[in-house]
Design a protein around this nucleic acid. Structure first.
Lengths: 136, 136
DNA sequence: CGGGATCCCAGATGATACTG
DNA sequence: CAGTATCATCTGGGATCCCG
């Protein structure tokens, strides 16, 4: 199984060469990856993408174990990245709806490959993990 | 842009319904996602997949800013998950080589979609992020 | 060379209380 | 309802030292 081919790809260099080069700034690609791979971002995007436009508490309930604070923080980040649209209705009590932008939706579609992979292999991986005797 | 369709998918329910159901255990899919979305896992897999079999310090150098400790921890986890193969040669000084297993390679291929997306959109996102005036 | 074991801190996250 | 503000906590991860 030889896999050295892709090392010459542009996108590949964007992660490794670039990362070592710019010590001051941060590699843009790593930056994005870091952002979307935090604890709640993927789940938020996926929930919004799957169930469509939603209000804050509805989303919170969907995800289940996210705290109000962290969901707020996550959504604000997603909004400033242009992945989520936040719409506030001037009512009392307030109503706020969140939905994916086209950009957010496109990201979700890429995420699906990972989710599919995890769905397919999770049982096997976790079984093996315990067999080896790891703590976590 | 209607996107409610996928909410009925099996894989979708594995993330949301399932997560709320099993309060004691953890949703297997979320578990896997959490594991591979930590700070170094993706980079390690990607480096190994791109450059092929590598020794410890070679890998460390490729990634660039990972500490010895975290690379060790990351590789151990990957090994116990069956994504990376660790081969120790009984020599002095010791030589240890790491390479992706077929499973690890298959995961890397799914990751490429995300990487591609990040490569394509990172500049735009980061530009927008600053414009909004967010701190980070 | 490739780690293991410890110590320790910053930042991520949770819990709680308050508010327009 | 949808936050904000504050305080408490927990943990990822770096630094350091040691070892076969």
């Amino acid at each position: 199984m030889e896999t050295k081919a892709i090392a010459t790809d542009k996108k590949f260099q964007n992660i490794f060469e670039h990362a070592n080069a710019t010590k001051n700034g941060v590699c843009p690609v790593r930056d994005i990856i870091a952002r979307i791979s935090d604890k709640w971002t993927l789940l938020s995007i996926y929930a919004l993408g799957g169930y469509g436009k939603m209000r804050f508490n509805e989303l919170k309930h969907r995800i289940g174990d996210v705290s109000q604070r962290m969901l707020t923080v996550t959504l604000r980040n997603l909004e400033s990245d242009g992945l989520v649209l936040r719409k506030v209705y001037p009512e009392v009590p307030p109503r706020v709806e969140y939905e994916l932008t086209d950009l957010g939706l496109s990201l979700m579609h890429q995420m699906e490959y990972i989710i599919d992979w995890a769905n397919t292999n999770s049982q096997e991986i976790i079984k093996r993990r315990k067999k080896v005797g790891n703590k976590k």
